[in-house]
Write a protein that binds this DNA or RNA. Structure first.
Lengths: 234, 234
DNA sequence: CAGTGGTCTAGACCACATG
DNA sequence: ATGTGGTCTAGACCACTGT
């Protein structure tokens, strides 16, 4: 007996259903028996079946609709889950020593491109913070961030000399909504200088916009050092 | 009354708890009351509280451990979920017309770098497939893929002239394990030619390795056209 | 050892979407 | 109109783990 109890667990059901999909016993687009029938088959309650199927749907294998029933997705909507770590954790996970350095922090009127991007009123003030994250003495990430002062007035008193703006924001602003993009950009003179690469080098770049209850809070660009890869398994 | 029933739903609890975290009423690292107490507070059953907290933990806000209780994570482990669509769906979601074109498909002995990467035995055969995905007549993605013939013998009969190897593989091999990476690479002459960009241009690139029950199935590099961004919201 | 979360049962009512 | 999933209750036993 490996089972602690003799009951069928929702995990067993998940495994079995997955195996049936994989073996072809459950064809793509085909309908599964309803929960009640499956409960009989697995000799458990509908609640247990429900949890199993709900999670499988969550993971992108099934599609469930009331009255229509549960269907095997023809092209499993596999979804990759990337954990977005704080830079410090990322560096330390690599076995390195994290070091932070502030480059500049100053408030100014939002440039037009930023106003447009965040839908700011003309002339709103923003804090512009630039900083570096190192792995030991190797550049790891160059961060160029804008913080909307009206949305986070405390930022005027913030001290970014020891702590990065991201860590500060996470502790200060309970954000509600994030848009995150990744792209490949070309190192301009500034980025190349900070990351110690040649100008024109391809740079893996992240862009992050954060809103707090509909109000734009911050826009950040994160330029990763050469050779960076974002990886996940599933 | 907006409530269909007067019962407290697990969604209400999630919202309330989240609000408490955001307002600072629940400090980072602090312990929540146990499920039983919360059940009393929300006048519902422990089951309902359990589901709410379980999902919040899943989403990276809480950490739960038996006996230790439920804790607010100091640095919310926000995780981005990127749905990995098939290229066809991605193009069509953009409102474009998907077009596929095979460039070449041939079997050969695996090159050394690939053998190393996938831990193949020396001299194993692979099918090398290169193809293009278009949005209308605009290059969208150049795909360079290797398929391990021993793992998927049917590939010798596969016809990639009309359907891309990815769609074929998804329908043929119910894969179990994927490693997916994204990085910024530099367009070499080949890639530049197919994507219609200048050589040296930064290219957003995906690498995907798939195993079936421990056996390597395929290695693919996907080169996206200039300007591509991978975006998610959460 | 004892407290906490993890899971299951048995039953119920309801929301929703389809035919 | 009706079948299907969505959710809740009330109670139970158990697994894990910190003290």
């Amino acid at each position: 007996m490996t089972q602690p109890t003799e009951n069928t667990s929702y995990k067993d059901i998940k495994q079995t259903v997955l195996a049936r999909i994989r073996s072809g016993e459950l064809q793509p687009d085909s309908l599964l028996p309803n929960e009640e029938k499956l409960a009989v088959e697995f000799s458990c309650t509908r609640t247990t079946v429900n949890r199993a199927l709900r999670e499988l749907a969550d993971e992108g294998f099934l599609e469930r609709r009331r009255k229509a029933g549960t269907r095997v997705l023809s092209a499993p909507q596999r979804q990759a889950r990337f954990t977005i770590p704080m830079v410090r954790d990322e560096v330390e996970a690599l076995g390195g020593t994290y070091r932070y350095a502030l480059i500049s922090a100053a408030s100014q009127t939002a440039p037009e491109w930023l106003s447009a991007r965040l839908a700011l009123s003309p002339g709103q003030s923003v804090m512009h913070v630039r900083c570096m994250h190192f792995n030991g003495n190797t550049p790891f990430q160059y961060e160029d961030r804008w913080i909307v002062i009206d949305s986070v007035p405390q930022v005027k008193q913030a001290d970014f000399s020891q702590t990065g703006p991201n860590e500060w924001l996470i502790q200060t602003v309970p954000f509600t909504n994030v848009e995150l993009s990744f792209l490949a950009s070309r190192a301009d003179a500034t980025v190349a200088g900070f990351l110690d690469v040649s100008q024109g080098e391809p740079i893996f770049t992240g862009e992050r916009i954060t809103w707090l209850q509909g109000q734009p809070v911050t826009f950040a660009k994160m330029y990763f050092a050469a050779g960076y890869r974002m990886t996940t398994q599933f």
